[in-house]
Amino acid sequence: MPANRTPVMFIHGLWLHSTSWQPWADRFRDAGYEPILPEWPGVPATVAQARKNPDPQAGVGLAEISAHHARIIRDLDTPPILIGHSVGGFIAQHLLGQNLARAAVAICPGQIKGVKAVGPAQAKSAFAFLRNPANTKRAVSLDPAQFRYAFANAVEQQESDELFSEWTIPSPARPLFQLALSNFAPHSPAKVDTRNAGRGPLLLLSGKLDHTVPDVLTRSTRKQYRNSPATTDYHRFEDRGHSLTVDHGWRELADYSLNWLDRYQH
């Protein structure tokens, strides 16, 4: 790692490959950071390989994904900044709560324990997988129509099709079950230390049009941190859906995140 560069770890969510963060990585490198794009356990290095061989990640859950990223962090010379989307946004919060990062940006984050699931749009996005308990041991895929509804409802159909073709991969369904059922499990892996007073600053970003993680869930997530004096900021993008990290408007989020980080890093 180049000297004097703060590492930034990008953590993707379900159904997107780590390489989907590459434009963000380039933007952050240009801004003086050192990007890291780790994969989830069992996921190959390319989209094509992940589509061809999804089985090694089948059954992987939140605890395994978080522990995998924690091991990478502990091998770094300095704590990183974390930027996560969807389930990756949950992982970023989980690691920040353990004091493993200096700051975190959680974008449309998977709901932590204590946040209540709401709304038919969210239910429709996940029901196709949650209705079959056997999926907890499988890697599952979105079809183009599911991707359009869950991710790309705020962009044109052509862009939705292009994003689906370029970035989607099969993903383990187990994290979906763990997040959805977290409030019924006393020892849920979806629990985050929201009372940690000594953690680094956290920025929660949401899209008003998001079907998968509706904005109300992100606002509810912020409320879970009300008993901690540590910084927890929130911002909503009015015209964005769940694809906001990979669609044509990604730079707006990246620049907002960079500007927010500048307040704490310099």
Rank of each mutant, 00 (worst) to 15 (best):
M1V: 11
N4G: 05
T6L: 15
P7D: 08
H12I: 11
T19S: 15
P23S: 10
A25V: 03
D30G: 13
A31S: 12
L37N: 00
L37D: 03
E39A: 12
E39G: 14
P44I: 03
P44V: 04
A50R: 02
K52T: 12
P54C: 10
P56R: 04
Q57W: 01
G61N: 11
G61M: 09
A63E: 12
I81F: 05
I81V: 15
I83S: 06
H85S: 13
H85F: 09
S86Y: 07
S86Q: 08
G88E: 09
F90R: 04
Q93T: 06
G97K: 02
G97Y: 02
Q98P: 00
N99Q: 13
A104T: 08
I107D: 00
C108V: 07
P109F: 04
P109E: 07
Q111K: 01
K113E: 12
K116H: 13
G119F: 03
Q122P: 00
A123L: 13
K124T: 09
N132D: 15
P133C: 13
T136G: 12
R138A: 15
A139K: 12
A139D: 10
Q146W: 00
F147K: 01
V155C: 03
F164P: 10
S165K: 15
W167R: 03
S171G: 14
R174A: 12
R174S: 12
F177Q: 06
Q178A: 08
A180Q: 11
A180C: 06
F184G: 10
A185I: 15
A185N: 15
P186G: 12
K191I: 05
R199F: 05
L204D: 01
T212R: 02
D215L: 01
V216K: 09
V216D: 13
T221F: 03
R222N: 06
Y225L: 04
Y225S: 05
N227E: 14
N227P: 00
T231W: 00
D233K: 00
R236L: 02
R236T: 11
E238P: 02
D239T: 10
R240C: 06
G241D: 07
G241C: 05
H242I: 07
H242S: 04
G249D: 06
W250L: 00
W250R: 02
W250E: 01
R251Y: 03
L253Q: 05
L253A: 02
L258C: 05
D262P: 00
Y264W: 15
H266F: 02
